[in-house]
Design a protein around this nucleic acid. Structure first.
Lengths: 108, 108
DNA sequence: GAACTATATGTCATATTCGACATATAGTCA
DNA sequence: TGACTATATGTCGAATATGACATATAGTTC
């Protein structure tokens, strides 16, 4: 539902309920998780290409092996910020990131 | 400098100094800031399109007017995570985000 | 199977980011 | 001018993400 439509409905006295809200949040949450997974996959790919161990990458980005593992696992405790910073440190460009983000999911 | 090249140099006994390191960090930092600016510009555009005030958008994303203002200003205290979540809440898709991220800078 | 090396998982104190609030600035309309 | 609306900026306690560390798991070589 578009925010403008929501706004109009609210003006007309509708209360947008928690079920609709819940569904909206789910869709957003899916997109958010998908985004993180794609970045983590790019990170794995880049690290492999550079033939670095997690320990070596951790050193490069001033982090720790455990956090690198969590990044690559798409752990909920890892922010997009950290993924992006790590990818940039590995030499990825903004358009590399964009490509990864918009790539279609692979066959299963 | 590629991480693999750096690694090889280090194997051969080179110490990658703080100047090189500084330059690398600057480049990464630029890309990071550029990324945030592009997302904040997309947020402004999307909010304008929906004709929402900052207060209304804040409500929609369960935040506050001041944080929305900071998001749109690319304030350092705002994470990419928050920008992304807000954009998704405004109905942007991952490929919308990707487009914004890889877009070339406008003429000045 | 012991000794390595690489990666995964759990925890924790500290650092960063958060929403909220106060307040400032700026534009509009009467 | 003063009231009103929108946006910007600064601060703060609470919430979340961080690097570090310990330890687990798994693969390899001897």
């Amino acid at each position: 539902m578009k925010a403008s439509k929501r706004k109009n409905l609210e003006k007309q006295g509708w209360k947008i309920g928690s079920v609709e809200e819940f569904m909206d949040l789910s869709a957003e949450e899916s997109a958010y998780i998908e985004l993180k997974i794609r970045l983590s996959e790019l990170l794995k790919k880049r690290r492999a290409k550079e033939k670095l161990s997690q320990v070596e990458l951790a050193k490069l980005v001033r982090s720790s092996q455990s956090r690198v593992a969590k990044m690559e696992a798409g752990d909920p405790s890892v922010s997009i910020d950290l993924l992006v910073k790590s990818l940039l440190a590995l030499g990825a460009s903004n358009s590399d990131l964009a490509k990864a983000i918009s790539s279609k999911s692979r066959a299963r």
